[in-house]
Amino acid sequence: MNEHLNSGQPSLKKILERYQQSKPGTSLEEYEFLLNRNPLLEKIFIGADCAVAIFDASQTNYLYISYKLEQLLGYSANVYHQGGLCFTLSKIHPDDVMSLLGILEKEISYIADLVPAQRLEYRSSYDYRIQKSNGNYIRVLQRNLVLNLDTADNMLHVLVVLTDITHLKKDHTKILHIINKQDTGFAYLYNLTDQRIIKDTFLSKREKEILKLLGKGYSSKEVADELFISIHTVETHRRNMLEKTNIKDTSCLVHFAILAGF
């Protein structure tokens, strides 16, 4: 396992224990079409460039690993099934371990504070660097969706979708973006300097409006006309969004925003 995970990281053991508070599910029939590696679904995942897994919180392990995930990182499904979450964490870039553990801890606490119905509406995304089987690191965006709860209404199974975004981001900042009906569109930002997570609205309402129109292919002038603001204001917001997200350019920003659910 990654030495950083054995060097007294205070939150790793706590995270594993908190996940394992969930009680194992009694039936996996609803996932049978996935567990049997449905050929059509596997082809769809590959075509959509989606690396998919189903995480079992009670076992801190994976019920399902898609072919695409095997292709993306180069590890067989058996490796994930045998090593579980600890194997995945052992492949995280050493400089990203602390921030990712902080994000996981924040996510678990956030979900625990929701009422059961809200937990099933929870979605999140965050990114990190992970090592492939050939030794190279790539940056992935991980999106999570709670699939079901255990008998005590704790998070049990989580759909995990990984996308390679190595070409999109410029630096190693971390953003935990959370979406649910009660608290939509805010983020936790990991500050690299003092190594702490700060809650932030991240993108303003106006910035999201502009981003949505840019995603539809609008030019700055068309955005300005649509929102009754000046082109200068649009360009200022574009620059601000690039600075906040540390994305290379506007086209990459739109792509990232769509993936992350902004």
Rank of each mutant, 00 (worst) to 15 (best):
I197W: 14
R143I: 07
N134H: 07
N148P: 00
D200F: 01
Y190S: 09
V161W: 06
D183E: 09
K132S: 04
R196Q: 13
A152H: 15
N144H: 14
Y122C: 10
I179L: 14
L168S: 06
L141W: 02
F186R: 15
K170I: 07
Q118W: 13
Y128Q: 00
N154C: 09
I138W: 02
E121V: 01
N191A: 08
L168H: 03
D194H: 10
I178D: 01
Q142C: 04
R139F: 03
I130T: 03
H157L: 00
Y126L: 02
S133A: 12
R196P: 00
V158C: 03
L189M: 08
N136D: 11
N180M: 11
Y190K: 09
T193Q: 13
K169A: 02
D127C: 10
L149Y: 06
D171H: 10
Q195A: 08
N154D: 05
I197S: 15
S125L: 10
Y128K: 03
V158I: 14
T184L: 13
N148L: 10
V158E: 01
I198E: 13
I178W: 06
L145H: 13
N180H: 15
L168T: 09
M155S: 01
R129M: 08
Q195L: 08
Q118V: 08
L159N: 04
K170G: 04
T184D: 15
H167P: 05
T166E: 02
A187Q: 02
L162M: 02
N136A: 09
L176Q: 07
R129P: 04
V158A: 01
D194Q: 12
L189G: 01
V146Q: 03
L145P: 07
F186A: 12
L192F: 01
D150H: 05
I198L: 12
M155C: 11
L145Q: 15
L192I: 14
K169M: 02
K199M: 11
K199Y: 03
I175M: 15
S133N: 05
V146N: 05
N148H: 10
L162I: 01
L147Y: 03
R196E: 13
L162F: 05
L159I: 09
I198D: 11
Y188N: 08
L159S: 01
D171S: 07
R119E: 02
G185F: 11
L145S: 15
N134W: 09
V160Q: 11
L159K: 13
Q195V: 08
L120S: 01
V158R: 04
R139N: 06
K170F: 04
Y126V: 03
Q142E: 01
L189V: 09
H157V: 00
L149F: 03
A152W: 15
Q118F: 02
Y122N: 13
L145W: 14
N191M: 11
D194G: 01
G185L: 15
R143W: 00
L147K: 05
I178A: 05
T193I: 14
A152I: 11
D164I: 04
I175P: 07
M155H: 11
V140Q: 01
Q131P: 00
Q182D: 11
